[in-house]
Amino acid sequence: MKSSYLFFTAFMALASCALAFDPSPLQDFCVAINDTNNGVFVNGKLCKDPKLATANDFFFSVKEGNTSNSLGSKVTPVAVNEILGLNTLGISLARIDFAPRGLNPPHTHPRATEILIVLEGTLYVGFVTSNPQNRLITKVLNKGDVFVFPIGLIHFQLNAGYGNAVAIGGLSSQNPGVITIANAVFGSNPKISSDVLTKAFQVDNKIVDNLQKQFWYDNN
């Protein structure tokens, strides 16, 4: 009886393995293309014949971002839309430039954890844990410091110095996505009903109306 039970357990374990998916790409790369007539649909993108891949499929030049805006920051993404060779590789990055006191406002990446390294300047950074704690975790970072923002959590970066600052964020997705909280809530199209927002934020209707009339700059 005992041997039969062990055999059954082993069989179920093997069956489970047989049904599992391969966690890694089964090819060297899968360069995305926009030609719907020539390609294979993989992971949200069409892929070109790998024999036709070139160095430019894996290259992108990141320039200094223009921080002359209301936020004083500019995010330059380097994801699958910028480097087509990133398709299926599960990684991307972004360069973030800050003017003095510039802010990368509270936002989330729904599909990626972010690891940030400061190249120049001093940044005050933080994220908020999920309900019900909603605990704020913050740190002041200097050149060479690294900080992690867990996937999906609201986070921000503020230039705490009086000179320019630059940081690089690595992200665990080829297309991490970004939801800027203020833009999404008060700048949605069409607008969220003021009845919803006045009750959610416990403020007067005039405050909500004023916020919805603002121009919500997108620094991405």
Results as ranks from 00 to 15, higher is better:
Q133V: 08
N66M: 05
R135L: 13
S92K: 06
L71Q: 11
E120A: 14
G90H: 06
L89K: 06
A79P: 01
I117C: 06
T54D: 07
N38C: 13
G102E: 01
L84W: 03
T138E: 15
K51Q: 10
I83K: 00
D57P: 03
S68A: 13
L103Q: 03
F59L: 11
P105T: 00
K63H: 14
S68G: 05
S92P: 06
P110T: 14
V40C: 08
A99G: 00
R101Y: 10
L46I: 10
V40R: 15
F127G: 12
A94H: 01
H109F: 08
V125K: 04
G85F: 01
P106H: 04
N87Q: 06
K48F: 04
K48S: 14
H107M: 03
N43G: 06
N38L: 13
S130L: 01
T67H: 09
V118H: 05
P100W: 03
P110M: 11
A79E: 10
T122K: 15
N43E: 13
I115N: 12
T108E: 04
P50Q: 04
H109E: 06
V62W: 13
F59C: 00
K48V: 07
I83S: 06
L52V: 02
N104P: 01
L93Y: 15
K45H: 13
F60M: 08
N104M: 02
G39C: 13
N38Y: 14
E120T: 14
A79H: 09
